[in-house]
């Protein structure tokens, strides 16, 4: 069984996003271990890009900081390779398709497998443009479902997905928000009709209360901007505390 599947089998899964190289690659490596200790099940590593389309101001700024240090995909492969000597926590890459194209599609997947990355999320690569047959690779292809997705699209996404399905909580960008799509529960039900994969919900979840609410309808919770924001303000302890609090409410809700 893959590390991602194991994580979802254990309990309601907590996934956290951080940008690789913000504030530094060394700091990112340490954060991976610290987040795991605080109760994170899956680490989502964002690869910095000059024009991240789906991201709000917090993650855009985080990418800019990492790019000022010239962090490239090759550096993040090295980082994971090093971290893998100390941890088995599942790691997913989240990145824009242009970075994959420049690196070379085949080489990209070879490296993912070699260093031990478990899954990849490419938000601007819809399933119909995806040329990667997931069966050839052990790396999970995680696609996104949005509140606007039609049944026909959900079916297509389900067919191409492996690992888990990433459900966007509301229309819009990554970043904190007060409310989620009114039809979130019914979207989860629609996704379950086409796929037996676990469903994790992300975009804008920033408190333990919100995490608890989401965990009632989904299998996992993805937290990004709030953590990135705290890290940017050098409030690492507070970020880890929030993660631990989320872990606690998810365990109560199992």
């Amino acid at each position: 069984m893959s590390r991602i599947s194991e994580a979802f089998q254990k309990h309601k899964t907590l996934i956290t996003y951080i940008t690789a190289g913000d504030p530094s690659l060394v700091a990112t490596e340490k954060l991976i271990f610290d987040l795991e200790k605080a109760g994170v099940d899956i680490i989502e590593l964002g690869i910095p890009f000059s024009d991240p389309l789906a991201d709000g101001p917090v993650i855009q700024a985080s990418h800019q900081r990492a790019l000022k240090k010239d962090v490239a995909l090759a550096d993040v492969f090295k980082l994971v390779s090093k971290a893998r000597k100390k941890t088995q926590v599942p790691i997913c890459f989240m990145l824009s398709y242009n970075l994959v194209l420049r690196y070379g599609l085949e080489k990209f997947y070879r490296e993912l497998e070699r260093v031990g990355v478990d899954g990849v999320i490419i938000p601007d690569l819809p399933p119909e443009e995806s040329r990667v047959a997931s069966c050839e690779s052990r790396v999970a292809d995680v696609f996104l479902v949005a509140p606007t997705s039609t049944d026909q699209r959900i079916k297509l996404i389900a067919e191409k997905s492996s690992g888990f399905i990433y459900l966007i909580s509301a229309t819009g960008l990554t970043g904190q928000r007060q409310s989620f799509a009114a039809n979130l529960k019914s979207i989860v039900a629609r996704v379950r009709r086409y796929s037996s994969l676990p469903i994790a919900v992300g975009f804008g979840i920033s408190s333990a209360e919100q995490a608890a609410k989401i965990a009632k309808i989904a299998d996992g919770v993805i937290v990004g901007s709030v953590i990135v924001d705290l890290l940017a303000k050098k409030k690492t302890k507070q970020a880890l505390k929030l993660v631990a609090a989320m872990r606690q409410v998810l365990d109560v809700n199992r």
């Binding site: 389309l53 789906a54 398709y97 938000p123 601007d124 690569l125 819809p126 119909e128 443009e129 696609f143 996104l144 479902v145 949005a146 509140p147 606007t148 997705s149 039609t150 699209r153 996404i157 966007i168 229309t171 819009g172």
Partner: peptide
């Protein structure tokens, strides 16, 4: 060419 945007916009473009 093609269509490379986040899923939120895919149904809208269709």
């Amino acid at each position: 060419g093609g269509r490379f945007v986040p899923e939120t916009l895919m149904p809208v473009l269709e």
